[in-house]
Every structure is written in C-alpha cells, then in structure tokens.
Design a protein around this nucleic acid. Structure first.
Length: 823
RNA sequence: GGGCGAGUGGCGGAAUGGCAUACGCGCGACACUUAAAAUGUCGUGGCCGCAAGGUCAUGAGGGUUCAAGUCCCUCCUCGCCCACCA
C-alpha cells in the first residue's frame, strides 16, 4: 500500500485518509487490565434526537476528548467511550415527524451520530459503543430496576404528578417555570396540571445521608456540591406536639426555629392533611371542606399568586402551646405544603414573613420574641420589622437574653425532656417518580396480579422487549400507550393465574443512570458488567457534562451506584471521582441556539468548509470549558489559517544538523516553553490557553528560516491531541512511513519532555519597582543575589535619577520576578 | 426570598499576591493587485506629549501588603439554579 503524498493543505484528503485507518485498527482501544495506569474519561452520552450533532454539544465533547488524547500520550490506558441515550420523547417525536418507527429512527440516528463523531476525529474505542434502547442493554436496566424492587426501594403508589396533554406524566424535575411564571413541560413547553396517578417511584430519600456523606469523598466543584446539598434539602429541627383544646387529638408541627415558640399565635394545616377532618368543628365544616377542594384544583400559577395574597379558613379548634398555655387557633391554608415536614406549621408572625402575612389576614396577634441589631422592641406592625436571621431572645421566659442559636438548642433540649417534642430531620427531596405514560422507554418488568399486588418478572424473562406499536399516545386518563396492546398486556403470574403487565415505561434517566458501568463490559451477557473489570476501571476519573444535570442525572446516578455498592454489585461507593460542568455555546447572535431562531451552527458544515482540525480547536479555543459564550464565525477562519500555517511550516524542516546560532537557540527555548506550558495547561484542562501557546510557538517558527527535525517532531506530538489529522499527516511524512502501521501512528507516541534548564538558566529582564511603580528593567541571571542586584541598581543611570539623595528603606528581591524598593 | 458564580480593551478572553490587557477576533496603515477578496508585514486600553516619557485604568468605595484583577470588608450590577420548603 502506498500513500499518496499531499503537498498542499487539503483537509478533506487528509481527514479521509487517516480516519479510515484509525477506526479500522481501533487505535483508541481501552484495554482491560492493562499494566499501564488507567484513566476513565467520561462525557455525558449524547441524546440523538435531531438530524445530527449540534455544535454546542460538540464543544462539550471536544475538550474532554483532547484531554483523553493527552493522557494516552502521557502513557495512560485511557477509556474515552461513547454511546447513545435514545429512549424518550424527542426520539419519539422525531420518529413521528419522519414517519418511521422509533426503533428504526434510533438505529439511523445512532449511525449518523457515530459518523459525525468520526468525522470530527474523536478518539473513541468504538468496540464499547452502547445504545440504551438496545434490548441487550435495557435487559440490564430492567434487571437493575428489579434489584430496587426486591429491596423495597421501588414501589407502586399514588403520587401527585404533573400532567400535560402532549408530554404526558412528568416528574418535578421535568417541569420548569415558563415565561409568565406558569409551570410548563420542559420537553415541549406545554401546560401542566397536578393529578394523582399510580406511579412507580424509587425511594431516593432512603439514601439522603449516604449521598450527602459521599460528597466528601469526591472532587466536585463547590457549586455542584452545594446544589446537590440544597436539592436534598436536609433540615434539622423538632417536631412539637400540641394538645388540642377539648379533644383527644394532638397536632404535630415541624420547625427549625423552636426558639421563637413563645411568640407562636396560631397553627396552620395543609388543606389535604388527614387531621383536618378529625379536628374540624361542625359549624366550620362546609367552608373548610370547600376551601380544601378548591386548593386541590388550584393550578400552580394560582398558588404562586396566592403567595402575594394569602388565604385560609378557621377550623374552630385550638392548639395549646405547652410552654405558656396560649390557645392557638388552628387554620387550614394552602401555603402549607403536605409534602414537607409534618404538613403543619406553627405560626410565628413576628419572625416569619409568610406567617406575618397570614396573621394580617385574620387579625391575629403578632408578638416580638427576638430583638435584632437595631434594638427595636416595639410592636411589630410592618413586614419590614419581621426578622429571622440574628438576634437575642425577649418575652420568652427562661430564654430571655440568649442568642437565638443558643436558645434553639436550649428549648429543644427542654421540649424533648418534657415530652413536648422530638428532634427531627426532614428532607426536601421526594420519591423519584420512575414511570412514564409513554411508548418509547424501557418496559417496567413487573406484572399486576388479580389480587392487586405486583410481582417481578423472573430474570430469565429479561429483557422484556418493548413491543412494536403504531400508537404512541396515552389516553387522557389511565391508559399508557402499551396498555392499548391488549394481547401484550395479558399475561400470567408465577402461579399461572391471569395477570397484566405494567403498561408504563421508565423515564429517560433510567438508561443513563448506569451507562458508565456498561462501557466497562459492553458485551457481557451474564452480568451488567464483570466485577473485576469494574474494579480495574472504576471510579470514573473525570466526568464532563451539562450543568442542567447537576441535580438530576448526576445525583440520581450516584444514588443507583451507591445502592449497587450496598448490594456488593459494584466495587466503590461513588461512581465519579471528579466532575466539571460544561458551558453553553450560544448562536452568533448571543442567543441560545434553537431551530426557531435559525441560529444553529452545525459542526458538519464547519468540518466540510474548514476541516475537522480547525473545527476542534475553534471549539476549544473560543473560551474556557465551563463558560457560556456566543459562536463567532471569524474564530474558525483564524483556526483554519493556523492549521494551514502549521502544515506549510514543514518546508522549513532541516533533516541534518542545523547551524547553531541565535535563531536556533531562540527556537529551542521557545519549544521547551511550549512543551512545559501545554503540559501544564492540559493537566489543568485549559485547552484554550494551551492552543494560545501553540499559536505563540507557530508565530516564532514563522519568523525563523529553519527548524531542526527533532524540534519539529516534538512539536507534532504537542499538537496531536488538538489537531489529530494534520498531526498524523505531518508525522507520517517526516518519518517517511510509506505503509500504515498503527504502531507508527502519532497517537501512539509518547508526550514530549522539556528541558528545564532551557527555560530557567537564561538571562531575563527583571522589573524594578520603586514605591509601587515600575521604573526600569534590568538583565539578571539566576545567580544574581540581593547583593549583586543592589550594586547593579546603584550603577544604573536611569534608576539613579529616582534614587538620588534618597535612602533605600526597604528592598525586596524575588528571584526571577521583581525588585521592589521603598524610598 | 435562598444558594452558587461572575464583573478586565470595540469583542471572546489571559494573568501560582510579583511587568494587567497573553492569544485570537475586529479595526487602522502599508505591501501584493487594474481593483476587490484572499494573503502577508507593522500598529492598536484612555489621556498629555513631536518624542523620550509621564499619567489614569481590571463594576464602586475602603482595608491588608514592599507589591492587589487576585486576599479582607461594604455596596452596585449581571448570570445560573432553587423557591409559600416552615
């Protein structure tokens, strides 16, 4: 096989030639149990719903991919895998639009996406490609779901859910605030409302403590940790039980501020709370029940508007505050939520804004029990006087004079001792609704028996394949698309009795909750992954993804993994050692790329016009990975020039000895700096500045006449992670390789080293600062000391004008950095 | 309302407490061209100055330090996430 020599930079020829060879020989193979140290570099798997890869997504893969190439050259056994997360509504809608089945659409999209990934030259081990919609894959998603089921962490129960006519049943995290504050479906922007449905849930609240504790073991940015901590929403407080006047019933409230309890003047119950019916006085029944019914049907928009305009009804009953015997009227109001704490709140209007608003509505007394920094002890009449943060107790018996934090502890101890309450911890995170009334998802491998119970499918019946259907719509109430397939739904339980299959499917998050495990052992048909292989590869060393997944995918997949760890099925408690969130690539107009605005930039077009190398470095150079910025068409033009300039520089390479002169010395110095800086920047994942360093070196080379062959080869290695195609071409050419051998690929070479002495032991220009201003420069070498510097300064003509007749009060000399003088 | 983060040229952005504005874009001048595009060379924070040089600039104001974009305090603005969560 002979390789045609390419003399003029022609990205199409170069890219076609090398990508064929790379992928045919799978040069980016990740080797199980290799003696080399491993690195598992993971980027969130794409969701192939559109025609092809989006430039915004390409940006998120390019930097991690460059990093994985750098590590491979540094001698690591690198896994940089790729797969397709293809269940879910977008694929279903794509299929409908194109008149094909979701199964066929997914197959085609996966092929298109894979081609796009190859076109841009991503160094993926394609033997590990996965697709979450492949029955051989979702067999294990189902199997893992049954582990939750067997351990009581997957349950079928009535849950309030969001419901949209077009998007079906949605979980909290799939519903966002629309432009006018109204709740809409994230998927398609349709209106949603609250409904009760029988749902499968995964009980993530059972894992809150482990998930919180696990954050201490991982290297995540503070912002991600705190987002997850807030999402879990752990609050420590106390459940206080009050007796109800003239009744055997009691009412229990949750509060984090029992210190203010001497200022409690009323109690509020959530309208749907079961206690309401038991404590209500007959003469108030009609009104309260009417109120409860109304608030149940209130849309979220109305409830939010209610935030400015409180409402409620008196029940006729009173709770007795054990601290002071105060009789607190009990109300129902929908600003109290059933799902948090005990569903009952004690009203302290002097020190809680919502309680103050409510007290105003019913003319309830407002009592001050905390004095803030302003010392105000007057009656509280305005919302501005309500304060919650810091202060000292008053009007509170034995708490008076105490700081509120101390008082909080004191009163809790007191109440626990007197049997008035129990310390309690509550969490914001709820059960994770894990079923959807959609067609295109993993069938839940459970059957409903005649007696109304559920039964898991036996392992040998997995995968439970998704049956073909032409009808992807759910009935407006009750029946999921699969429920319409009567023949499929009908089945038998373990005892041969008639039973029905579950008709709901799993959410999009199912397959992606454990996909990183399947990459480790993608073809295993005995287990979701081999334990020894997991032990070798886990945890994921670096995980890159979108900020929008911080509290959804990232947290929930940690939950799956931690659960599997507790079962002894995976070797480590935390799946991801390190995480970085990627920013967003906006359109050239600075707006979020969208079909509607027509500002989408497609990487395929860029690759066609400017080449994959230019596209790659444009995506990495335009800004830091985590930031959001607009696409700029000029950038890729500049990057194309850079690649072309590099290609043309090969004419300057001298194969024999190069004449030693100032020019060759300068290049040597510049080269060593290049290697040092690019190495550091790759380690720090600052690919934008790494590319700047390459530009600086290229600028230096452009100014010189020749470059020696060793420097040139080192330079090609440096650019290889960024511009893999042109690097391969130049590498093959300079080495005169006439036939392809993967061992000779630039991508199997080792990363160059640099010579420290070339950077350090050189004369440098040292700035001289006098009274905080730079007043001169001076040539120094590393052997200079403070003494020699003092002499040089005294001799310097220019500096003398500043120092004349002045005494040097202080002189600070930082080697190689600065001399700072005070006069 | 709560949490997190960010404010540096015309723009994207650099800068372990040590010469602010690297690198790129854009712009200007010049070269090549009949001309334009492309390409190349040089220049490019503001103000004063022919120049040498001086001086002011990292959202605003204070502070620590020989030295602050960087650390501390107060404030302003913007972005993202959460939000009647007790």
């Amino acid at each position: 096989m002979s390789q045609e020599k390419i003399t003029k930079y022609d990205h199409k020829k170069i890219e076609q030639l090398w990508k064929e060879k790379w992928y045919a020989d799978n040069i980016y193979e990740a080797v199980d149990f290799s003696p080399k140290p491993k690195k598992y570099i993971l980027a969130e798997l794409p969701y192939p719903s559109g025609k092809s890869l989006h430039v915004g997504h390409a940006m998120r893969y390019t930097v991690p991919e460059m990093y994985s190439r750098f590590l491979r050259m540094k001698g690591y056994n690198v896994m940089f895998p790729m797969g397709w997360d293809a269940f879910g509504l977008p694929t279903e809608m794509y299929a409908i639009k194109n008149g094909v089945s979701p199964q066929d659409a997914t197959k085609k999209l996966a092929i298109d996406y894979k081609k796009a990934f190859m076109d841009i030259g991503y160094g993926v081990d394609w033997n590990r490609e996965i697709n979450t919609t492949d029955p051989e894959y979702y067999k294990w998603t189902q199997w893992l779901f049954l582990k939750f089921y067997e351990n009581g962490l997957a349950e079928y129960k009535d849950m309030p859910v969001w419901y949209s006519q077009t998007a079906g049943i949605l979980a909290d995290e799939e519903v966002i605030n629309g432009e006018n504050g109204e709740k809409i479906a994230e998927r398609d922007g349709s209106k949603v409302e609250r409904k009760m449905f029988k749902q499968w849930v995964l009980k993530i609240p059972a894992y809150t403590e482990k998930l919180l504790e696990g954050l201490n073991q991982v290297d995540f940015p503070e912002s991600i940790k705190s987002a997850q901590i807030n999402w879990i929403g752990k609050k420590e407080g106390i459940n206080i039980t009050y007796k109800i006047k003239d009744s055997k019933e009691t009412v229990t409230v949750f509060t984090t501020r029992p210190d203010t309890n001497f200022g409690a003047t009323f109690v509020v119950i959530a309208p749907e709370h079961p206690l309401v019916e038991r404590i209500i006085k007959p003469e108030f029944k009609t009104k309260v029940m009417e109120y409860a019914r109304k608030s149940k049907n209130k849309s979220e928009l109305e409830r939010m508007e209610g935030g400015k305009n409180k409402s409620g009804e008196f029940t006729g009953s009173y709770a007795i505050n054990g601290l002071n015997g105060y009789e607190m009227p009990i109300y129902v109001a929908d600003y109290v939520l059933m799902g948090f704490g005990t569903g009952v709140v004690v009203g302290v209007p002097g020190h809680d804004r919502r309680d103050f608003e409510f007290a105003g509505l019913f003319n309830l007394p407002v009592v001050r029990v905390v004095v803030g920094g302003d010392g105000d002890t007057s009656d509280i009449t305005k919302i501005e006087q309500v304060q919650e943060d810091e202060g000292t107790m008053i009007n509170s018996s034995f708490l008076d004079g105490m700081d509120i934090h101390k008082a909080t502890q004191k009163i809790m101890d007191f109440m626990v001792e007197k049997g008035m309450g129990e310390r309690s911890t509550t969490y914001k995170i709820r059960d994770w609704i894990f079923s959807r009334q959609r067609y295109w998802g993993e069938p839940i491998p459970v059957i409903h028996t005649q007696d109304g119970k559920t039964q898991a499918l036996a392992d040998r019946l997995l995968p439970l394949e998704l049956p073909y259907s032409n009808d992807y719509t759910a009935d407006s109430f009750g029946t999921a698309p699969l429920g319409k397939l009567k023949a499929w739904i009908k089945t038998q339980d373990k005892n041969g009795q008639p039973a029905e299959r579950e008709s709901q499917t799993m959410p999009t998050w199912a397959g992606s909750s454990w996909y990183f495990l399947r990459y480790i052992d993608p073809h295993n048909d005995k287990a979701f992954a081999d334990f020894k292989k997991m032990k070798y590869w886990l945890p994921v060393d670096k995980y890159f993804g979108g900020a929008e997944h911080t509290t959804v995918h990232l947290l929930y997949s940690r939950f799956w993994h931690r659960f599997l760890y507790d079962l002894g099925l995976v070797p480590c408690p935390e799946p991801y050692q390190w995480r970085m969130n990627g920013g967003l690539m906006l359109g050239p107009d600075g707006k979020k790329m969208s079909k509607r605005l027509g500002n989408i930039v497609e990487p395929g077009v860029l690759i066609e016009n400017y080449g994959a190398d230019a596209t790659r470095i444009a995506l990495a150079f335009i800004g830091p990975y985590s930031d959001t910025y607009p696409w700029n068409e000029n950038t890729i033009k500049a990057m194309w020039r850079l690649v072309k300039n590099i290609y043309d520089l090969k004419e300057k390479v001298v194969l024999g000895d190069v004449k030693q002169d100032d020019e060759s010395e300068a290049i040597k110095k510049s080269y060593n700096k290049l290697v040092k800086n690019v190495t550091e920047m790759c380690n720090a994942l600052k690919m934008n500045t790494a590319i700047s360093e390459i530009m600086i070196f290229v600028n230096d080379l452009k100014r010189t006449k020749t470059v020696d062959v060793e420097t040139w080869k080192g330079f090609i290695k440096v650019i290889a992670p960024f511009m893999p195609f042109v690097a391969e071409e130049l590498w093959q050419e300079i080495n005169n390789f006439t036939t392809w051998d993967k061992n000779n690929s630039i991508h199997w070479q080792s990363w160059p080293k640099f010579d420290k002495t070339q950077i350090q032991n050189v004369a440098t220009s040292l700035p001289i600062m006098i009274n905080g201003k730079i007043r001169g420069q001076m040539t120094t070498t590393p052997i200079d000391t403070e003494e020699t510097i003092r002499v040089k300064i005294a001799e310097d003509g220019k500096l003398r004008t500043y120092l004349q007749d002045k005494e040097i009060k202080k002189l600070v000399f930082v080697t190689g950095k600065i001399v700072s003088i005070q006069i």
